[in-house]
C-alpha cells in the first residue's frame, strides 16, 4: 500500500461542520487514527471524542500528525490547505468541491514549493484497504488485495473497487485525485509509488474526458512502469464544450478528447476496459 496505513495520524480541518463531523465518525469506525480536529473559533470542543483546536499549529503542539483531511467550505478551502502545508503536515487531502480555480492555481504552486503532497480538491480522498481511510468513500467495498486504483471519479471508483473485491483480487490503496481542472496530485505523480510498492501487483487508472493527465500518465507508463496497468475512460460519448458534472470534465477544442486518451494508452500498451466489469477481466488477464 502507499501513502497511508493503520498508523497514519490524521487531523480533520472543518471537523465541527456537518460533513466534517459525519465523516470523522465514519473514518473512526473504519479504524482511521483521527487524533485532532480544527475549526477556527471552536477550539476546546470535542467531536466524537476528538479534541478540536483553533489552528493547525495549535493542534500540532499537542499531537503528532501525518495527514490532514479538509472539509472546509469552498470559499475558505484553499486557505485551509495552505494552513496545513505551512504547518508542515506532509499529506493534505482536500475534499471540498467548488473551490475557485484561481485559489487553487495559487495554492497548488505554493504547497508544491513547500514540498507537501496535496490530493484534490473535489476528491473522495484515499483509502488503504482494511488499514486506514482518509476520505469519504464507503469503506466496506474495499477488500484488501493486490490492485492499486487511481481515479478522477468517486462513485466509479467504488464500483471498480467493489468489482475487484468481489472477484477476489482486492485493492491495496485507492486514491481519488479529484474532478477539478487544477488538482494537487495527478496520475503520473502516483504511478511511481505504486510501481515501487511490493503489495501492489497491478494498477487501475480511471480517467475521464478533459485535460491531458491521462496522456501524461500513458507516457510515464510507457517509459517506466514495471507492473500491468488497466485503464478506463468515462465520458466517451460526451459532447464538446459541455461540462459534465465535474468542473474538469470538458472537451476544449482538440484537448481532452477520449480519442486522444485511448490512443495514448494503446501506444503505452495499456488495455482499456469498456465497462466496469471488463476492468476485472483485464486485470485478471494481465496478472495471468
Amino acid at each position: 500500500m502507499i501513502l497511508i496505513d493503520r498508523n497514519t495520524r490524521v487531523l480533520v480541518q472543518g471537523i465541527t461542520g456537518r460533513e466534517g463531523s459525519f465523516h470523522t465518525r465514519q473514518m473512526l469506525d473504519y479504524g482511521t487514527k483521527v487524533v485532532a480536529g480544527v475549526t477556527p473559533g471552536k477550539g476546546g470542543q470535542e467531536v466524537h471524542g476528538v479534541p478540536v483546536y483553533n489552528s493547525v499549529k495549535e493542534a500540532l503542539k499537542e499531537h503528532e500528525i501525518d495527514a490532514s483531511i479538509i472539509f472546509v467550505p469552498a470559499f475558505a478551502a484553499a486557505d485551509a490547505a495552505l494552513e496545513a502545508a505551512h504547518a508542515g503536515i506532509p499529506l493534505v487531502v482536500l475534499i471540498t468541491e467548488g473551490i475557485p480555480t484561481l485559489d487553487m492555481v495559487q495554492a497548488v504552486k505554493e504547497i508544491k514549493d513547500l514540498g507537501i503532497r496535496l490530493i484534490g480538491g473535489n476528491c473522495p480522498g484515499l483509502i488503504s484497504a482494511e488499514e486506514s481511510k482518509i476520505g469519504i468513500m464507503p469503506g466496506h467495498v474495499f477488500k484488501r488485495g493486490k490492485v492499486g486504483i487511481i481515479s478522477r471519479s468517486g462513485t466509479l471508483t467504488y464500483e471498480a473497487a467493489a468489482a475487484l473485491s468481489d472477484a477476489g483480487l482486492g485493492t491495496t490503496t485507492t486514491v481519488g485525485i479529484g474532478g477539478d481542472p487544477i488538482i494537487g496530485t495527478t496520475f503520473k505523480d502516483l504511478l511511481p509509488l505504486f510501481n515501487e510498492d511490493p503489495e501492489t501487483e497491478a494498477v487501475v487508472v480511471i480517467g475521464e474526458i478533459g485535460g491531458s493527465d491521462e496522456e501524461e500518465a500513458a507516457a510515464w507508463i510507457k517509459e517506466h512502469m514495471k507492473k500491468p496497468v488497466v485503464a478506463f475512460i468515462s465520458g466517451r460519448s460526451a459532447p464538446k464544450g459541455k461540462r459534465m458534472g465535474h468542473a474538469g470534465a470538458i472537451i476544449m477544442g482538440d484537448v481532452g478528447t477520449p480519442e486522444s486518451k485511448v490512443k495514448a494508452f494503446q501506444e503505452a500498451g495499456v488495455p482499456i476496459a469498456e465497462t466496469i466489469d471488463e476492468i476485472v477481466e483485464l486485470v485478471k488477464k494481465e496478472l495471468g
Partner: peptide, 16 residues
C-alpha cells in the same frame, strides 16, 4: 445517477 463519473459512464453505455 449519483456521481459525475458514474453518470458519464451511464451515458457512454446507453450510446454504446
Amino acid at each position: 445517477g449519483n456521481g459525475a463519473g458514474l453518470v458519464m459512464y451511464t451515458l457512454d453505455l446507453v450510446n454504446r
